[in-house]
Simulated assay, not measured.
Amino acid sequence: MSGLVVVGVDGSASSLAAVEVAAEEARRRSADLRVVHAFLWPAMHVPLGASPLGPPDGGLRAMTERLVTEAAARARSVAPDVEVSQAVVTGEPLTVLEAQSRSAELVVVGSRGMGGFVGLLVGSTAVHLAAHGRCPVLVVREQAVPEGPVVLGVDGSAASAKAIGFAFAEAELRGADLVALHAWTGWNAPMPAPQDERAPYANEPGALAAGEERLLSEALTGYRERYPDVKVRHETVHGGAREALIEASRTARLLVVGARGRGGFSGLVLGSVSQAMLHHAHCPVAVVRGGDADGDV
């Protein structure tokens, strides 16, 4: 049975870019592609048919069907071998796409839609879906660097394990290198045991950095063996995670982050680093939730 990639469309240039990316993602996975439009107007009791004074193929419903048909045609032109279906589903976009994510292995959306306001860097649907979707969500922002690596943000939290597995799989699918990046500061690094009991706050120079390098290596344990063809580069950066990941995204073909990680607050469904990537990264961003059991979803 083929897997399923879902892409949300609304007729905007951003969503059409998402359709092209989604078609490529489906092709890589040998998966089917479903093009979905959330049709909100029936719930608002707006007339959907053609006006008696207008053309017979006018009206919101006909316009919506054309929109989805054109998006599906765009997908087929990008990936002719992919089985493409289309659906117009009555409902609010987040609710519709969250429901679609339950049967998908990936949902793809543009960073801005038809409802986007000038100055709003990322659409509310993209942010909320990244927090609530039941599968990884790929938000298409700027153009990826075709030969760049997959960049993975690693923080050592249990919730980030699914993001690590997803990033390795994506690098393998693309034939890309993987850069596993871990950023730390003196505020978020666990304090190693003191070397001298008489000086409880004293440690050898570089002890914090060495501990963070071990954290990164331990987080990746087992994945190298599972994905032996993926070339992995470790990068441990003393500095803010947001700044480090945004800079790394400049030369990446994909950035992968968890929905929430170390330092996340209970009840906060999308971490501040993940949100910052959706707003400011220079390449497509995949947000991978840790799972219902970890409390960050």
Rank of each mutant, 00 (worst) to 15 (best):
E212T: 03
S77Q: 15
H37D: 03
G91D: 07
T221H: 12
G175V: 04
A159W: 06
G258A: 07
V151G: 06
S85D: 15
T90M: 09
D155G: 04
L181R: 08
V21P: 00
L106T: 03
E235Q: 11
E212A: 02
G49E: 12
A199F: 15
V154Q: 02
A75R: 07
L33T: 05
A183Q: 04
K231P: 00
V232A: 03
E65K: 05
A31K: 12
H280A: 11
G123Y: 08
E225G: 07
M1A: 15
G261S: 03
E172L: 09
V21N: 00
H280V: 02
L97H: 11
S272M: 05
V151A: 04
P93R: 12
A219I: 03
E204Q: 10
Q195G: 15
V108L: 08
D229G: 14
R74N: 05
L60V: 09
P52H: 07
E172A: 15
D57Q: 10
V145Q: 06
E212K: 01
G206F: 02
T90W: 01
H132C: 10
R174E: 02
D32Y: 02
A248V: 00
V19P: 03
A293K: 11
D155L: 09
G267H: 02
F117W: 15
T185D: 10
A202F: 14
P200N: 11
T236I: 10
